[in-house]
């Protein structure tokens, strides 16, 4: 008899377990005493918890001053606004003529004061070759006149002749003996 009772209990336990599994599978979406309160892991995030639980938001507001919250929010809005490419808001504002002229004068004065402090890069040419903005002008320039050319030619010819006429007249011997040898000899003899 005892054996039968224990077997019956065992069966009942098994059935209850089956019921449980049916509940969880078939009626899992209906909240009952067995469903988890925190099923969705997203609901664990502080942002949602804050909206769901009033007590938490109260605690939060107590822990953080409202002013700080506002400034943090403003900062987020500001950062977002900075990163957004807003082409529609690109209407340029024009300066008033009076302000424009005032600024022109101000800048002129400031520049005059400051230009003396500017370290001017040296204007001396660094090489023989120089930048020429439009070489066509120089390349298409008219050639020099014929008399000038003949003058240059004759001058060059005469210079060439003069150079060819240069001769070395040697008056002394090319090899000059020093007196070192004699002195060493005299040392040896002494």
């Amino acid at each position: 008899m005892e054996y039968l009772r224990s077997a019956f209990n065992c069966l009942a336990n098994l059935c209850s377990c089956l019921d449980c599994s049916e509940d969880s599978s078939g009626q899992g979406y209906e909240p009952n005493e067995r469903t988890h309160l925190l099923v969705d892991p997203v609901s664990n995030s502080p942002a949602l918890r804050r909206t769901n639980s009033e007590s938490f938001s109260n605690e939060y507001s107590q822990s953080l001053p409202k002013k700080d919250e506002q400034t943090a929010l403003n900062r987020i809005i500001q950062d977002t606004a900075i990163n957004i490419i807003d082409v529609a808001a690109m209407d340029s504002h024009n300066l008033e003529p009076q302000e424009y002229h005032d600024r022109v004068k101000l800048y002129y004065q400031k520049l005059q004061q400051q230009w003396s402090n500017v370290q001017h890069p040296s204007n001396s040419p660094t090489g023989l070759l120089r930048d020429i903005p439009n070489p066509e002008l120089f390349l298409t320039a008219s050639p020099i006149s014929a008399p000038d050319l003949s003058l240059i030619k004759s001058a060059v010819d005469r210079a060439k002749l003069a150079l060819e006429d240069i001769k070395i007249e040697h008056k002394e011997d090319l090899i000059v003996p020093f007196n070192i040898h004699d002195s060493t000899q005299s040392n040896f003899t002494s």
């Binding site: 600024r103 101000l106 800048y107 400031k110 520049l111 400051q114 230009w115 402090n117 500017v118």
Partner: peptide
Amino acid sequence: DEIKLAVTES
């Protein structure tokens, strides 16, 4: 750099 000073100081 020098010219910038004229703008930033004003």
